[in-house]
Simulated assay, not measured.
Amino acid sequence: MEMHHKLRRDPSWHPSACNICGQMGHQAAQCTSGTVNWRQIYGDKAFILRGPVYWSDELARKKLKVVDAADLERRAKEYAKGQAEKAGMNFEEILKNAEVLNAQDPALTIKQAPAPVEEEPLPAGWGMTLDPTTSKPYYWHKKTQKTMWERPTAETPIN
C-alpha cells in the first residue's frame, strides 16, 4: 500500500478495505459515503455508455479520410523551397540536379503506390470482421447477428 493511503486511513482498517470509509467489499472509487464527486472531475460524458464500434464502421471512416496527393505534393514543394531559401540554396538548381541523378539511376525514382481497389459499401445493417484463425473476412447482420462468409448484397435475405 502506498504511503499517502496509509497516512489518510485509520490504522485499524483492513489493508483491502475502502480508503474512505474502511468497509470491506468495495474500493474508494465505488464508495457511497465518499466525498469525491466523480461527475465534477470527469464530467457527464465519462458516464454515458457508448455503443459498440464495428470493424466495418472503422473501415468506412478510414475511406472517408482521402488524401489529396496533388495538394500534398504542392505543399511539400513549397516547404522544400522555403527551406532551401533559408539555407541560401537555389531550389530550381536542386530540382535540375535531382532530374539528372534520376536519369542516371532509375532505381532512385519514386514509384507511385497502386491505387486501392474500391469496394462497394456494405448494405445497411451489415458489419465485416476478420476470422482470427484464418484472417478471412466474414460478415454479420448487426441486428439479427446472422453471420456468413459471402459478402452480402442489398438483396441478401435477413432471417
Rank of each mutant, 00 (worst) to 15 (best):
P114I: 08
Q145E: 11
A154G: 01
Q30G: 09
E73Q: 03
A87M: 12
I158Q: 07
H14A: 12
V67T: 02
S33F: 04
D105M: 02
K6F: 02
P11S: 07
M24I: 15
K111R: 15
E73Y: 06
E119Q: 15
W38H: 08
T147Q: 13
K96A: 12
S33V: 05
K62N: 12
K142E: 11
T109W: 02
A28E: 14
K142I: 14
K63Q: 13
V36S: 06
V100M: 14
E85F: 05
R50C: 03
L49S: 14
Y54W: 04
P52R: 06
Q40A: 13
P114E: 15
Y42S: 09
F91L: 06
S135I: 03
Y138E: 00
K96T: 11
A107P: 03
E2C: 04
P123Y: 11
A98W: 04
L108Y: 07
T129V: 04
G43F: 05
E73M: 10
Y138L: 00
L130C: 02
T156R: 00
R50I: 02
A28W: 12
E119S: 12
L59G: 04
L95E: 12
R50H: 07
L59R: 01
A29D: 15
R75Y: 10
S33N: 12
E118A: 15
A124E: 15
F91H: 11
I48C: 03
E78N: 09
R75W: 09
G22H: 00
D71S: 13
E58Y: 08
R9K: 06
V53H: 02
H5E: 09
N159S: 09
V67I: 09
R74A: 13
E73S: 09
D68C: 00
S135L: 10
N37S: 11
M24Q: 14
N102L: 04
W126L: 00
L108V: 01
N159W: 07
M1G: 10
Q83K: 12
T147D: 03
R75L: 07
G51F: 00
A29V: 14
G22T: 05
A98C: 04
A98K: 10
I41V: 14
W149D: 14
F47E: 06
R75P: 00
A46F: 15
A107E: 14
P114K: 14
R75S: 03
L101H: 11
G125E: 02
G125N: 13
P11Q: 04
Y42I: 06
S16F: 07
M89W: 09
L72K: 09
R50E: 04
A98E: 10
K45Y: 07
K65M: 10
G43M: 05
M24D: 15
F47K: 10
I158Y: 08
L64Q: 13
F91W: 15
Q83E: 13
G34Y: 05
E92M: 06
H5Y: 12
C18M: 03
T133Y: 08
E120N: 14
H14L: 07
L101G: 09
A28M: 11
H26W: 07
G22L: 01
E120F: 05
E120D: 08
P106M: 06
L64N: 07
N159L: 08
G25W: 09
H14G: 00
G82W: 08
D71L: 06
E58I: 12
Q23A: 14
A87H: 08
G25R: 04
Q145K: 14
E78W: 02
Q30P: 01
I20E: 09
A84T: 00
F47I: 05
A69G: 05
R74W: 08
H4V: 04
E120G: 11
W149C: 01
